[in-house]
């Protein structure tokens, strides 16, 4: 049995708190969606506060859909689609994407300054990040959905409201372009 509902002072203040008897999976799912939704919204918006707003809207939709019989919003693709729509709305309003995406404080983490291999990998990832940020939005978006968020082609098709065949061809185009731009940094034996 699942009991997930607004409670006590938190609810009065507009903050959802929840109680769960036996289904910890639901809470874990919500937590997972929130985390992944935030990262996804950050990829799109590049601003943490705006990303949090988009995720909040996405969670609201998820929450309202959960109560409906016959609805099955328990898929990350469904949730991502809602969050993405909110992000697109926000982008329309402010007409540009900010540049705080993924690595607001410089190169990616997992640094290992003690080893040359670690430095080289960091350099590679920083270059990759840079090239990724410079790509056209549809190509950048689909690359991140597949390779960073690990969505299947079917899921990506649902998020972007396109056909699976289009996902395949767009991904091919995106990777080819990125590979071209990364020439010189792609020694396969590393």
């Amino acid at each position: 049995m699942v009991r997930l509902y607004p409670t006590g002072v938190g609810a009065a203040a507009g903050v959802l708190t929840y109680e769960v008897d036996t289904d910890r999976e639901l809470v874990a799912l919500m937590d997972d969606y929130r985390r992944r939704g935030f990262v996804f919204a950050m990829h799109m918006l590049g601003n943490a506060d705006d990303a949090a707003d988009a995720v909040q809207d996405g969670l609201c939709a998820w929450w309202s859909q959960r109560g409906r019989v016959g609805q099955s919003p328990d898929s990350i693709a469904w949730f991502f689609r809602v969050v993405r729509n909110r992000c697109v709305d926000q982008l329309r309003k402010r007409s540009h994407r900010r540049h705080e995406v993924l690595s607001p404080e410089g190169p990616p983490d997992r640094r290992d300054p003690a080893s040359a291999a670690g430095d080289e990998r960091d350099e590679f990832l920083a270059r990759l990040q840079n090239e990724l940020d410079r790509m056209d939005e549809p190509l950048r978006e689909i690359l991140l959905l597949r390779d960073f968020h690990d969505l299947t082609y079917a899921d990506i098709a649902e998020v972007l409201s396109i056909r699976v065949g289009t996902v395949m061809s767009r991904l091919h185009r995106a990777r080819s372009k990125l590979r071209e731009r990364m020439k010189g940094n792609l020694c396969a034996d590393e």
Binding site: D147, R175, R179
Partner: peptide, 15 residues
């Protein structure tokens, strides 16, 4: 090369 790019993206920093 495509594999390396793919793995690289999966290792990017997570905000």
């Amino acid at each position: 090369e495509l594999t390396r790019i793919r793995e690289g993206i999966s290792q990017l920093r997570q905000p």
